[in-house]
Simulated assay, not measured.
Amino acid sequence: MKLRNALAATTAVAALAFSGAAAAETYRIGITQNNVGVDSYQTTYEQAFIESAEADPDVEAVVLDAGGDVARQIAQIQDLVQQQVDAIIIWPTQGKAVVPAVRAAHNAGIPVVITNSNIAEEGFEFIKSFSGPDNITQGSRAAEIMCDKFKEMGIENEAQIVQISGQPGYTTAIERAKGFEDRLPEVCPEVTLLETQPGDWNREKSQRVMETFLTKYDDIDGVYAGDDNMGVGALNAAKAAGREGIIFVGATNFAVGYEAMGRGEYWGSIYQSPVDDAKNALATAKAILTGEEVPFLNYFDTPKITQDNMDEFTKPVF
């Protein structure tokens, strides 16, 4: 692959620059990503990962993308095992389906780090660490954001909402929905969740899902979307239908979500940086290879962001 060759060349140049000195060991770290082209978060993550690897003379990165195809990702993991890389980072396309390939990497003596979205629990024994956001906490915090707004509006005892979740079978989608659905009845027990439909992380599909919701339900007070890309799709549908007063709450604050918050059209989200996500994954893999202790669940913080406090956060770059 051109990208792999470019990274290898960069590492070779770095190694030459340090010739004559006691050079540190170079670690070959492979990564197979979920679907770089599906949204700007994943595109930015890849760019940040490549930049971090290029800046580290001790790292040679093999960067792959599964394109959302589970079979392709499994083949990529198998190829990385055959290459005998020092560590493998996996952004799973499907949390359960990749477990056998992860087990094979583990059996080959290659440490595995899962990034961004975790694998199914039965695969935990085969990985060294998960690096990424706590998606259940994100869903829980989104429920709190929505409930607090309903209380401010005085409709917490009657509000009706719909949910647009992410890609079915994808751990992030499952966990964010679970966190939201478990927390909402605790903080706003009278709020009714009318229906949940997947938006597959896609703005256009989410707009169509919301159009169906708007036709089906005369009274919708709030929308929870598994990320802001989908949330803005739902917002666009509501605007086109002339349905005002709906409270939109998302997760993974995209630039489009931040901008919509600034216009007063979108209430809140969860702030998550793809740059931090990528850097954390690479640092976790390298720490494992150098013998450092790392948490099994190596989370980075993802705080609440709403129209009330958005000035405290920089606009996302994705």
Score class of each variant (00 low, 15 high):
Q163H: 05
E54C: 09
C188M: 06
I305A: 03
I31P: 05
V275Q: 11
V294E: 07
F130Y: 15
K205V: 14
A108N: 06
V223S: 02
A22Y: 08
I174W: 00
G95S: 09
L214E: 01
S52E: 15
E125G: 14
V317M: 11
D134F: 02
T196I: 05
Q197H: 07
I50M: 05
T43S: 10
A66K: 01
A14Y: 10
K2W: 12
Y170D: 10
L193Q: 03
Q307D: 08
G262T: 02
A260V: 01
Y258K: 04
E144L: 09
A23Q: 15
V36Y: 01
D134N: 13
K216Y: 07
A14C: 12
N157A: 12
R208Y: 13
I220G: 09
V59W: 05
V162H: 04
A8F: 06
S273K: 00
I88V: 06
M210L: 04
G68V: 02
G109T: 02
D200A: 03
E292L: 13
N229T: 06
G257S: 10
D301W: 03
A283Y: 07
I220S: 07
D134S: 07
A75C: 01
A237R: 06
I174C: 00
P274I: 04
G226V: 09
D69E: 05
P111D: 05
G169L: 02
K149S: 13
N118W: 12
E211M: 13
K151R: 15
A53E: 08
V317A: 14
F18N: 14
G231E: 12
S269P: 08
A8N: 09
Q94V: 03
D200R: 05
G68T: 01
A55L: 08
E122A: 11
E265P: 07
N280K: 12
Y27C: 07
D86G: 07
W267N: 09
I247K: 04
G242E: 11
I161G: 06
T93W: 04
I90D: 11
R203K: 14
E122V: 12
K239C: 08
Q94D: 14
I89K: 01
Y224A: 08
V191M: 08
F213K: 13
N107F: 04
A66V: 01
V63Q: 02
W91E: 08
I174M: 04
P316M: 04
A159E: 05
D56F: 06
N157Y: 10
I89H: 01
N116I: 03
F49E: 06
Q167C: 01
F318I: 00
L184P: 13
I164M: 08
A71N: 15
E293I: 08
V249A: 09
R176M: 00
T11N: 15
T284F: 02
E175K: 12
E190G: 07
S206Q: 13
F254V: 00
Y27V: 09
L80W: 09
W267R: 05
A9H: 12
V113E: 06
V275A: 11
L214Y: 01
L235E: 11
G37N: 03
D58H: 15
E125R: 15
E144V: 14
F150T: 03
F126R: 05
D221K: 14
Q76K: 01
A120H: 12
F248P: 06
